Simulated assay, not measured.
Amino acid sequence: MKGAHVLAAFVLLALSSSFASAFDPSPLQDFCVAINDPKDGVFVNGKFCRDPMLATANDFSFSGLNIPGNTSNKVGSNVTLVNVDKIPGLNTLGISLARIDFAPYGGLNPPHTHPRATEILVVLEGTLYVGFVTSNPNRLITKVLNAGDVFVFPIGLIHFQFNIGQTNAVAISGLSSQNPGVITIANAVFGSNPPINPGVLTKAFQVDKNVVSYLQKQFWVNNH
C-alpha cells in the first residue's frame, strides 16, 4: 500500500512538472533585444538577442501611434500593432499593444482570435459595441463602451469591436504576448490559401454550395 502512495505522489509530481513547463519561463535577464542577424547572438523566444551592452533607447521605443489608421476599407477599421517586430526590446517580455481606428457608424474589427494573448481594450474616443464568445457552450458576452471604458477579451476566444457611434472611434489594446497573432474568422475560413474544400464548408455551415463558392470568391480584408 505504501508503494502505491509513493507511486501516486511520483505521478502527481511528474504531472505538475509537465504543467509548469507548458508555459514560457520567466526571463532570466533584464531584456533581450531582438536582432535578425544570428552573429554573436543568443536565440531566445524565436529571436536572437543583441549584446545588452549594445542596447539603445531606440530598441525600446516606437513613434507614430498618434497617427490615425486608414479605415477606408470594406470593414471600416484599421489595427496598428506594436509588437516585437516594431519594438525589438519587447522580446521575452510578454506584452504588446495596438491602436484600433474605426470609421463612423459601422466600422468593424471583425470576429477574430489571438491564439497567444489575452487582450485588454480601453476606448479613447467614440462608442463601441464589443463582445466575445465563450467555448462550448457558445455564450455571447457583450457590452457598449464609451470613452474611458475598459473591456477584457480572454485568450483564444472569438471577439469583435463595432462602432455604433456617428463619429470616428479609437481604442488602445494591451496584449499579453510579444507576438499575439491574429486569426480573423471569415478570412481564415473562406479566404485560406489554398481554399478549404467547398464540401467541408457546405456541410459545416449547412448552406448551398453556391453560397460557399460566392464567399470564397470575395476579397477578404486584412485590417491588421
Rank of each mutant, 00 (worst) to 15 (best):
F205W: 13
A55P: 01
K143N: 07
I95T: 10
R50E: 13
N136K: 14
D51E: 04
L28N: 07
D30Y: 12
I100H: 00
T56N: 15
S213C: 09
F102S: 05
K39E: 15
Y214S: 15
F153M: 14
N146M: 09
P137L: 06
N36L: 11
S18N: 08
V200E: 12
N58S: 10
S77H: 03
S177D: 02
Y214L: 10
T80L: 00
G64M: 04
A4I: 11
T167N: 15
L7P: 07
F190K: 09
L13S: 09
Q206S: 15
F219G: 05
T71M: 03
N168P: 05
N146Q: 10
C49P: 04
L124D: 00
K47S: 10
L201Y: 13
L201M: 09
L215S: 07
V44Y: 06
P38E: 09
K2T: 12
T92S: 02
N136R: 09
S192G: 13
K217V: 05
G107Q: 06
L12W: 10
P52H: 07
S21C: 11
S16W: 15
A169R: 00
N109R: 03
P68M: 05
G131S: 07
I100T: 03
V221A: 08
M1C: 03
E119S: 04
I183L: 04
A4W: 08
S16K: 14
N91Q: 13
N109Y: 01
V123Q: 01
L28W: 10
P154K: 11
M53Y: 15
F102C: 13
V130H: 04
D40W: 07
F102E: 05
F43M: 13
G191D: 04
M1R: 08
S16M: 11
G181F: 05
A117P: 12
S18Q: 14
G3C: 12
S173I: 00
V170C: 02
H114D: 02
V207H: 11
G3N: 07
G69N: 02
N223Q: 06
V144M: 00
V11W: 12
A98I: 00
K74M: 03
K74D: 04
N210K: 08
D101S: 01
P110V: 03
H159N: 15
P137F: 09
D24K: 12
I120N: 15
V200K: 12
H112N: 10
F162R: 13
P27H: 07
N70T: 02
I141G: 10
L93E: 01
V75S: 09
R99F: 00
V11C: 11
V170H: 00
N187C: 08
N187A: 07
Q206V: 13
A169H: 01
Q161I: 00
F219N: 11
G199C: 04
S77N: 08
L157N: 04
D24S: 12
K209P: 05
V122K: 04
F190D: 08
S16R: 11
P180L: 10
V42W: 03
V6W: 15
L93C: 01
V170M: 03
N66A: 09
L81Q: 00
N210E: 13
P38H: 11
T134V: 14
F205Y: 10
Q218I: 05
P180K: 05
S176P: 03
C32K: 04
